[in-house]
């Protein structure tokens, strides 16, 4: 135990890369996840993660860049959902349901054409953080920095339109471009994070650290810092659990962040009762 316990996994290059990846993903999805939580977009985030599958699948089968493929599919899905909501007068969650299921099924159908169907699908659905290459890390770093930089630059505008869209309009902020930009940031975050936790568990990285942070602090930017920390710590602890208990990394990370949420939730409830 002790130091050796912590250092042993790091002898392996794939674990080193995995650690960097989960910290990057934990921070970026932790920050962007705060918007998902305060704007009530958990279903949208989950759906967007699933709709990137056909793009990832096509890139995978054709040997292209998974990141570009996933991003293209995510943007197409967001545009499609917006169009259905406006033109077909569907409620937004109905439009999301239609697009999400259809694109997810298309993605599975495309992957099923490969010979190593079940292994590939498992990696995409549940993540393969130990298969992260140096080039993937670079992509995560660049796009992660872009996302965090955009959030920092437009923090007060995003805050106004999240808290009170009416005020954003009376201030004549460009609400529609800002909203689309936020969706774009969400799509980039999802695609950059896919390799660590996969499509099926992506929503946990967006929602759970942010929900944990919400219980601890009362200002959005503080929430982002705490959420990023919870996300990164969950990633690191989850990866150790994965190494020692021989669990798949995605579920190990998500179970860790869920455990953190439960601990904080119980503590917050106890404190609230004492305060009564």
């Amino acid at each position: 135990m002790g130091l050796e316990f912590l250092l042993e996994p790091l002898q392996y290059a794939f674990m080193q890369r995995g650690m960097v990846a989960v910290i990057l993903v934990g921070v970026v999805s932790g920050v962007v996840g705060c918007y998902v939580v305060v704007r009530g977009m958990a279903f949208f985030g989950d759906a967007l993660a699933h709709t990137v599958l056909p793009g990832v699948a096509v890139a995978y089968v054709a040997g292209g860049n998974l990141f570009i493929g996933g991003l293209a599919a995510g943007v197409a899905a967001a545009v499609g959902i917006g169009w259905l909501t406006r033109e077909a007068r569907l409620k937004e969650d109905t439009a999301i349901g239609v697009v999400f299921a259809g694109m997810f099924a298309l993605g599975i159908a495309i992957i099923s054409t490969t010979r190593s169907y079940s292994v590939d699908l498992t990696h995409i659905l549940f993540g393969d953080v130990l298969g992260v290459a140096d080039a993937d890390l670079l992509i995560m770093l660049v796009f992660g920095a872009l996302v965090i930089g955009t959030v920092a630059a437009l923090y007060k505008e995003f805050l106004v339109m999240s808290f009170d869209p009416g005020l954003a309009k009376t201030l004549r902020l460009p609400t529609e471009p800002l909203r689309l930009l936020l969706l774009g940031l969400l799509a980039v975050t999802i695609v950059a994070s896919l390799q660590t936790v996969g499509i099926a568990l992506m929503v946990a990285m967006l929602v759970t650290p942010a929900a944990t942070a919400r219980l601890l602090v009362k200002r959005l930017h503080h929430m982002m810092v705490v959420s990023a920390l919870v996300g990164a710590v969950s990633g690191v602890v989850g990866l150790y659990l994965s190494f020692y208990l021989n669990l798949p990394s995605g579920p190990a990370i998500v179970l860790t962040t869920t455990a953190l949420f439960i601990v904080v939730f119980v503590a917050a409830q106890a404190r609230w009762r004492r305060g009564q």
Partner: peptide, 9 residues
């Protein structure tokens, strides 16, 4: 029309 649980002071 306002979410009073929003994390703002």
């Amino acid at each position: 029309e306002i979410d009073w649980g929003f994390p703002v002071t």
